[in-house]
Computed example of a mutant assay.
Amino acid sequence: MQWANLLDIQFQAAEIQPGAAVIHIWDLILNMGCDGGTIPKRHELVKGPKKVEKADKNAELLARWNYCALSQEKLHRPIVACDLGRLYNKDSILEYLLDKSAERPNIEVVAHIRSIKDIKELNLTDNPEWQGDRRNAKGDCYEDLHRARFICPVVGLEMNGKHKFCFLQTCGCVFSERALREVKTEICHKCGDPFQERDIVILNGNKEDLESLQDRMEVKRAKAKLDKKSKKSKATENHPKLNESEENPGPSRNVQEASKAVSVNNDKCNDSAVPGPSNSSSKIARSAAGGSMKRPLTVNKDKSEVYKSIFTSHTSAKRTKDQSSHWITHTPYHF
């Protein structure tokens, strides 16, 4: 009776009709939980281990082959690559080299790049079947994500990550590994420049390829340091020899200087011995013949007075005692 009275009170308070009373009672019972006849499943009561989230391989390939490894922007020409085979936009690398203190999201991928010499601009071959990003602007056609912008000029494989590609450090041309393996040569297939096996760098290689490229880069830099040190040591060895030769001139140099001094003295004696106008004419003749003395501008009659006034040997450039000061500058006018 108590339950019946309580239900009647609830029905009256909720203004529920007697026909809908049974439905309301079942709703109350089912909403109470597991004791109302619900049958929960095992995955609802027992929580298992969390699933490890795996990256989509297709998305990873698109990111590595179509976007810059530093700025995460879409690759656009000019495209460069480092000694480890990563792809970058050249402008992003230049910005990094100009300001290395700026905060960037992927700064660790360019820690090994110290100067512009550590990167190489790539010579890529366009894919004729690639129609660009505007082909599917409306979204009404199928878009092949594996269609790449660039291909191998020898075999024709698309550079989309499914096939291994590499570039030559000598010229920057890009080929597929299959082309270099099948057509063995020591000359570039595209530009004809010679190359060696150590000049081949794999683009976006796996873990083993990265380790081998890292070792090769360290060996290359160590060799460059040794070459630089050897050049410096050779330069320091050559400089003391030059200084010694200047400080201690040989007998031939002394003989030449002595002969010059004797000839100058003989000229002075001859000039002083011959008086009159013939003395000046002999001086001019000797200067013209030997070329050791220059003719003054006052003697040259072909030049005009305006041209002669440019030089300090002209009479207009000379100063009187009243015009000259008592101190001397680094370019004094004393004649």
Rank of each mutant, 00 (worst) to 15 (best):
L6G: 05
I9T: 00
Q10D: 07
A13T: 15
V22W: 01
V22S: 11
W26P: 02
C34V: 15
G37T: 07
G48K: 07
V52Y: 03
A59G: 01
E60R: 15
E60M: 13
N66K: 09
K74R: 12
K74D: 12
K74Y: 13
L75R: 04
R77L: 09
A81L: 08
N89Q: 10
K90F: 04
Y96K: 06
V110I: 05
V110T: 08
A111S: 07
I113F: 09
I113H: 04
R114E: 07
S115M: 08
K120Y: 02
N127E: 02
D133P: 01
A137S: 11
M159C: 13
N160Y: 00
C166F: 03
C166I: 04
G172Y: 09
V174A: 01
A179L: 02
R181G: 11
G192M: 02
N204K: 09
G205P: 01
N206V: 01
N206R: 06
K207D: 04
E208H: 00
S212H: 07
S212V: 09
L213G: 09
Q214R: 14
Q214I: 10
R216S: 01
M217C: 04
E218G: 10
K220A: 13
L226V: 15
K228W: 08
K234Q: 14
T236L: 02
N243A: 02
N243C: 14
S245D: 11
E246T: 15
N248Y: 14
S252C: 14
N254C: 13
Q256W: 14
E257L: 10
S259W: 14
A261W: 05
A261H: 11
S263G: 11
K268N: 09
D271P: 09
V274S: 07
V274L: 00
S281V: 15
I284R: 02
R286L: 02
A289K: 09
G290T: 12
S292P: 00
T298A: 04
K301A: 07
K308G: 00
S309Q: 03
I310V: 11
S313K: 15
T315C: 09
A317M: 10
R319A: 11
S325H: 00
